[in-house]
């Protein structure tokens, strides 16, 4: 019976094949290995889409719980297991976005530098946070799929094939979304370009 488990892997080309086979037999250590490989990226994908630390963590948990529960019956048509993980994350984020149309952009993760002590440093930190918020607002204002295309290309460094697979569209459609997304983003950020670049220069 166990030989049929996780039967999606017809070849060993998937780097997660062994982990998923172990996961299908109910091994929690396999889940840990899978998370060590993919959790940071899955969580960051959710964060970029939702701009909310807590919800990003919840999405990440749900993705890996689905991986755990469904591992014995997972089937592949040829793509990597990680593509499925990203797709689940993407779909869960879309569900969240549809449930809550209004995104609270002011909820940004605390990226604090412990070395900050002086007032000057606090001002620099505020400027950086403001800059991040403006860029995050511009990204979030994009149509969902354009936003996702930019996240996958720019923040997740996915290849065009991987990104298109995650988005469940063809490469041409992905490139079109990416080009339109960047164009919209340029237009949205153009009025703030000088101040943003100045803040970046000050912070550097």
């Amino acid at each position: 019976m166990t030989q049929n488990r996780a039967s999606g892997f017809k070849t060993n080309s998937d780097p997660d094949a062994k982990i998923v086979t172990a996961l299908a037999s109910g091994d929690p250590a396999a889940l840990k290995s899978l998370m060590e490989r993919h959790l940071p990226r899955i969580k960051s994908l959710a964060w970029y889409m939702l701009k909310d630390e807590m919800r990003a963590e919840d999405i990440a948990q749900e993705v890996f719980m689905k991986a755990w529960k469904h591992a014995p019956n997972w089937q592949s048509g040829g793509a990597k297991y990680s593509t499925w993980l990203y797709r689940v994350a993407k779909n869960l984020c879309y569900d969240q976005l549809r449930k809550k149309q209004e995104i609270h952009l002011d909820v940004l993760p605390d990226i604090t530098d412990p070395s900050i002590a002086s007032d000057e440093a606090m001002i620099q930190s505020d400027k950086l946070a403001s800059q991040k918020t403006k860029i995050a607002q511009a990204l979030t204002a994009l149509p969902e799929r354009q936003n996702l295309a930019i996240i996958l290309c720019h923040f997740q460094n996915k290849s065009q094939r991987q990104a298109a697979d995650i988005m469940e569209i063809n490469v041409r459609a992905y490139e079109s979304l990416l080009a339109r997304g960047r164009q919209s983003l340029r237009q949205r950020l153009n009025p703030h370009k000088k101040s943003l670049l100045k803040d970046m220069g000050d912070h550097a």
Partner: peptide, 20 residues
């Protein structure tokens, strides 16, 4: 500008423990 808005990817041990 996009680089400036990027988030550091770190392994969250507490989250991993919660999921396990």
């Amino acid at each position: 500008l996009l680089d400036a808005a990027s988030l550091p990817e770190t392994v969250n041990d507490l989250l991993m423990a919660r999921i396990i």
